[in-house]
Amino acid sequence: MFKKIKLNLFILVFSFILIGCISDVDENNNRNYDLYSKIMCPVCDGQTIGESQASIANDMKNIVDVYISDGKTDDEILKYFEDRYGTEILSAPPNSGTNTIVWATPLVLISLSFIIFSVWLKKSAKGNS
């Protein structure tokens, strides 16, 4: 019985992690605003074009709108800006090339340390009982 509960808890926690990682957090009902939040304003410090009111940010928003009504995909639109301004125009680095590191490191390190941590926890608990 005791083991069962433990197992259940573990599965529950684990499925939480999995589902959380798989699901797309940034899904928004409005595609335009979603894209605005993925493009940085090139003349502002640390603001996306959605947040900025600089002329260039407004113009970039218009371009996004036009391309959306032209039927371009999100990736195509982001690529357009990336080609012109470099990767730094994207508010989060793409999961490719050397930038994979930024995404993979937390995932690997957190799961690795969680395993070490839970092994230690179990060992410590066993040693006592």
């Binding site: 090139p42 003349v43 002329s55 260039i56 407004n58 113009d59 970039m60 218009n62 371009i63 800006f81 012109r84 301004y85 470099g86």
Partner: peptide, 13 residues
Amino acid sequence: NDGKYAIEYGVKA
């Protein structure tokens, strides 16, 4: 005036 060319060239400043 609509920044079309500036964005085309990736103008930052």
